[in-house]
Design a protein around this nucleic acid. Structure first.
Lengths: 188, 188, 188, 188
DNA sequence: AATGAATGAGGATTCATTCAT
DNA sequence: GATGAATGAATCCTCATTCAT
């Protein structure tokens, strides 16, 4: 039953399955067989499409970062002087991105970046983009946007990190409050 | 001639070796054989002392958190109104704790906490203690110490996280600056 | 527009590709996919034409032996009393047959003959034909043509074997010299 | 039941099993599990001792060549002017070395030498030693020992090759006759 | 005729763990 | 206390082969 054009569909299914399984397992110790089964296909096909487990992981990571990037871009520019900033923040804590399984995968990808050059590069690019976006968004609001952008970036990561360790459903609103409290203080 | 009191020495050697190897590898994918070899003994002996690989990891994690706790306690109460706060912070970013390999291990233990109940409990205890310490330290300085303690805790984690992804030697001083800039703003 | 008579062309392409790939790899550990790709078609089509990998190998072996047989027949009868003998020998060491990749494939087919009855039969037939040809060719030259044919056959194989293990381009002329030196001695 | 000093015993068992299995299979397509089972142990232990399948093969090849070398050395110098030569030849066709399974393994190692540098080196060393031995042995008997040594070496290989393709038990005596007939002619 | 899609079977290798000594 | 020996279970990956289109 070979449907034509199956490749992108299969790849997408594998990427989603990988994120789900990594999130569920809370670890990169997930077998290709697990991921493939969750995606409804044989491990051999997963290899056929991605070549290796590593490539599946990288594609999943890329997907998470890309999805996040899209969320931001769609929310920009917002309105008013804090429009850009609010757009970035609400995208960061939107339910789509701020799900437990996504954060869990994200944490594990951070760990992967210690090992894998491609993963490290992906993360670095994400950091740079976020920083640029934040600086542009902060320029109308403060005299030292770069410093605040750095702190804000770290704070966002820290809040993510803590969210995943809290039992129960992740609470994007509460997370966002922490961020906004900080911004209120620092932006006068 | 069996050495007396070999057990604690052996265990300590294994714990240190585990942290080093996890730090070096940037991952929990470290074999018991690796750890045991680094600690100068056979894998069988490592099992004899700890019972399982998991227990070695938990002991290592406990060691990191305990070491950090000791650093804080030794620095307390410090002097002056910000004495307690500065003590906690400088312990957090002291070279002993803020080494790449320790942070790398720490990041991986965060990931482990997603999986393992004991690891999660250890981390939760550490978070609670840090929070209490920070609240006590912040009380003389602000009207809402709990909120600031939460934000500060997240910020510290975020700064750790980013430190490990920066190439080159970890820079505790720079990390501390980010924290202090935040505190300056927020403590008026 | 389906090309007419595609089958023999496709089969020939596969056979050549098989010999090339086996020669290049120096082993029968060549995948059907490799061979098919080298022949410019899908692995599925290769199966369609040959039914199995084994049959591709056998066809390739048959092709090598047939090509060699043709070379001999074209050179026969030659001229003079040693005409037949020289014809056989020069065909055996002609560049077409005495290429590294062909010899490498040939060596691997020898190994295949240990396993596969059809391959063994092919090789046996080749041996018999060569022996008959040599005996006929030697009859005008010696009193015990059968013995010399046997020795000569083994010597030719041995020279092939050693040629493939010598680095650099195969040297048919040198190989032929070894054979001729032998014949000079033995034919007085 | 860990017997001390098991390593050399296990390694020897694996080497013998490898030769037997390769001989029986007529191919290097033998699994580590097969070899290990034949040697009475688990595949994991085979890997423990040799590190990889390739190393098992190389050790087996080394063993075959070493065994042959020992046979020769033990037979040298023989007696009389043809003593050295006869010693080498009778070692070459002695039942110990001229068994079907050994020859079959030997043929496959020839093929392996096309692929693997270490295997190629082993074979080259064997060729050189055989050549030296033959030259020394031929010096008292002929004016151009080097040429005869080369031809003789190729002839021996060719005879081996043909022996393995003949059904039924290998016949060392017949093989030796072919060689001796050649020598009679060439040594006047 | 031709192929993309798909998989079952298998194989090398790794490793935590056990056990006899 | 300490270790060499040993393995079962797992995991990634490969590949010949099949099949619907």
């Amino acid at each position: 039953m070979p449907k034509l054009g199956a490749e992108p569909i299969r790849k997408a299914a594998l990427i989603n399955a990988a994120i789900t399984e990594i999130g569920r397992a809370g670890s990169l110790d997930v077998t290709v067989a697990q991921i493939a089964r969750a995606a409804g296909m044989s491990p051999a096909l997963a290899h056929h499409y991605f070549g290796s487990k590593e490539q599946i992981f990288l594609a999943a990571m890329r997907h998470i970062l890309t999805t996040y990037g899209k969320s931001v871009r769609e929310a920009l520019p917002g309105s008013g002087p804090r429009g850009r900033l609010d757009a970035i923040l609400s995208a960061s804590f939107a339910p789509l991105n701020f799900r437990r399984e996504v954060i869990s995968a994200w944490l594990n990808f951070y760990a992967l970046a210690l090992l894998n050059n491609q993963a490290e590069r992906l993360l670095r690019v994400y950091h740079c983009r976020l920083r640029s976006n934040l600086i542009v968004a902060l320029e109308p609001l403060t005299g030292h946007p770069a410093d605040i952008a750095d702190t804000l970036g770290a704070l966002i990561d820290g809040v993510y990190l803590r969210a995943v360790l809290t039992r129960g459903p992740t609470d994007g609103a509460a997370a966002l409050n922490v961020i906004n409290d900080y911004l209120e203080e620092v932006l006068k």
